[in-house]
Amino acid sequence: MKVIFLKDVKGKGKKGEIKNVADGYANNFLFKQGLAIEATPANLKALE
């Protein structure tokens, strides 16, 4: 799953980066902790 990092995550990505991560990692950790959002077309456009 492609995500946009909202904060730096050690060993995974930095704020503003768009990366592929495992679905479970994104859903169970990144999204719940507010560290990333899904890289949907709307979210990508808002990032610009």
Rank of each mutant, 00 (worst) to 15 (best):
M1D: 03
M1G: 03
M1S: 06
K2C: 13
V3H: 00
I4L: 10
F5H: 00
F5E: 06
L6W: 00
L6Q: 03
L6D: 01
L6R: 01
K7T: 12
K7Q: 10
D8G: 06
D8F: 04
V9F: 04
V9T: 03
V9S: 02
K10Q: 12
K10S: 05
K10M: 12
G11Q: 05
G11C: 09
G11V: 01
K12A: 15
K12F: 14
G13E: 04
K14C: 12
K14P: 01
K14M: 11
G16F: 09
E17F: 02
E17C: 04
E17G: 02
I18C: 07
I18T: 06
I18R: 00
K19S: 08
N20G: 08
N20D: 13
N20I: 15
N20P: 08
V21Y: 06
V21R: 00
V21T: 03
V21L: 05
A22L: 09
A22S: 14
A22E: 14
D23N: 14
G24A: 14
G24Q: 13
G24F: 14
G24N: 14
G24W: 15
Y25L: 09
Y25N: 05
Y25T: 06
Y25V: 09
Y25I: 07
A26L: 07
A26Y: 12
A26V: 05
A26T: 04
N27P: 06
N28A: 12
N28V: 08
N28R: 11
F29N: 07
F29R: 05
L30D: 02
F31A: 03
F31Y: 06
K32G: 08
K32T: 13
Q33I: 09
Q33K: 13
G34Y: 08
G34V: 04
G34Q: 08
G34D: 06
A36M: 03
A36D: 02
I37G: 00
I37E: 03
I37P: 00
I37D: 01
I37M: 11
A39Y: 12
T40S: 10
T40Y: 04
P41Q: 11
P41G: 09
P41Y: 10
P41C: 11
P41L: 12
A42M: 09
A42I: 08
A42D: 13
A42W: 06
N43H: 08
K45R: 08
A46Y: 12
A46G: 09
A46F: 12
A46D: 11
A46K: 12
A46C: 10
A46P: 07
L47D: 06
L47A: 09
E48H: 13
